[in-house]
Design a protein around this nucleic acid. Structure first.
Lengths: 142, 142
DNA sequence: CTTGAACCTCTACCTGCTGTAGCTTGTATC
DNA sequence: GATACAAGCTACAGCAGGTAGAGGTTCAAG
């Protein structure tokens, strides 16, 4: 029987985060000690590790929920698992592309500014006037 | 005198967002009509455009606040402006690097899985076991 | 038996908005 | 002047994905 602190240490998660995952139904409600403290099994440790690792790969909690559900039915086709991962890959690629555009723009901005007074600062000028931008950055980059 | 809706349309911002910026002190409190509706000047439009454009380049509201403050003192050195932009560039580069690592990992995961049953799915295996990862992805990728 | 670390619940806060409810104002048309 | 309707107003709740703190209880070692 593992305490919440042990789980936290072994998976590199904060204690509060584990309780949060329980609250949103991502982790099951564990058993309790006499005094009411959470007591976990090894299976819970595995599940939490899965969640954390998926988070590190950028999956949303919703996607992780889906992956966990899928992995509970081992006889089903893994096409759905594939689809979830593909979607995640596309999202990551998207984000990279958008950030890349920002990077180029920021670099250009910085390289252009050689003024020393704020009044002549090219950076501020570019920020003031979208027209001076070459990049197409419609959405904020998340 | 411009209404909030006009400002919204011209800058591609939602009306609520403008009110939110006012609430957090990023936009000044504008004058009001007899009936209490906000009425803006052209300077407000410029300021909002600056904010929105900076947001599109990924600057945080805190950074934007700083940039706006700096641009209010045109005689000062623009070194600080430069510093803010540099920091933003570094953050973007960081995020790109982390996402790039994720991309590689996700791609590898996907290419390895040729099972059709969930039970044999490589993707789920990799997610279960961090050790199977080559990439070093300590933090979630934001 | 006492100490002190670790646990408990509950609530609020973070960023950067977005949406809704319920009401008021402004303006164009008749 | 009456009326219709868009657009404005305030206030509050909610999103992701947690994090922090208050104030109190339990567990395990010595």
């Amino acid at each position: 029987m593992l305490t919440i602190g042990t789980l936290a240490k072994r998976t590199g998660t904060k204690v509060q985060t584990i309780r949060y995952y329980e609250q949103i139904g991502l982790m099951p409600e564990p058993g309790r000690s006499e005094g009411g403290q959470r007591r976990y099994r090894d299976a819970d440790l595995d599940r939490l590790a899965f969640i954390r690792h998926s988070r590190q790969l950028g999956f949303s909690l919703e996607a992780i929920r889906e992956l966990l559900d899928l992995s509970d039915s081992p006889e089903r086709s893994c096409a759905q698992v594939d689809a979830v991962a593909q979607k995640q890959l596309r999202e990551v690629e998207d984000r990279i592309a958008r950030l890349e555009a920002l990077r180029v723009e920021l670099q250009r901005m910085l390289s252009e500014c050689s003024a020393d007074r704020v009044a002549d600062c090219r950076i501020l000028e570019v920020l003031r006037d979208h027209e001076e931008c070459l990049a197409d950055h419609g959405r904020p980059a998340t």
